[in-house]
């Protein structure tokens, strides 16, 4: 079952991944990281289709994708 992993401490909260996720499952977690950014997060991992759109759009290589 496809899944994504977010390296919390690398995220800068730019939200580009949120805008491109086709299943709209990425949201900004209120719990900020050490840099003080809200972190992109996925909870409904079962809806992830492993398309890697988020990872391609991410400027900071935060996201690993498994399929």
């Amino acid at each position: 079952m496809p899944k994504v992993e977010f390296e919390r401490e690398r995220c800068k909260g730019c939200e580009l991944c949120v805008s491109v996720c086709p299943t709209k499952i990425i949201f900004m977690d209120e719990k900020i990281n050490q840099k003080g950014y809200k972190v992109a997060t996925v909870q409904e991992m079962d809806k992830c289709i492993g398309c890697a759109m988020c990872a391609r759009m991410c400027p900071d290589t935060v996201i690993k994708v498994y399929k």
């Binding site: 401490e9 690398r10 800068k12 909260g13 730019c14 939200e15 580009l16 950014y37 492993g50 890697a52 990872a55 391609r56 759009m57 991410c58 400027p59 900071d60 290589t61 996201i63 690993k64 994708v65 498994y66 399929k67």
Partner: peptide, 24 residues
Amino acid sequence: LVFERPSALTDKQTHYCPGCTHGI
């Protein structure tokens, strides 16, 4: 694992502003 940071990038976090497409 089908997508991860390429090995030709170091693992240093960039100084670019949030959302700056330099990183891409």
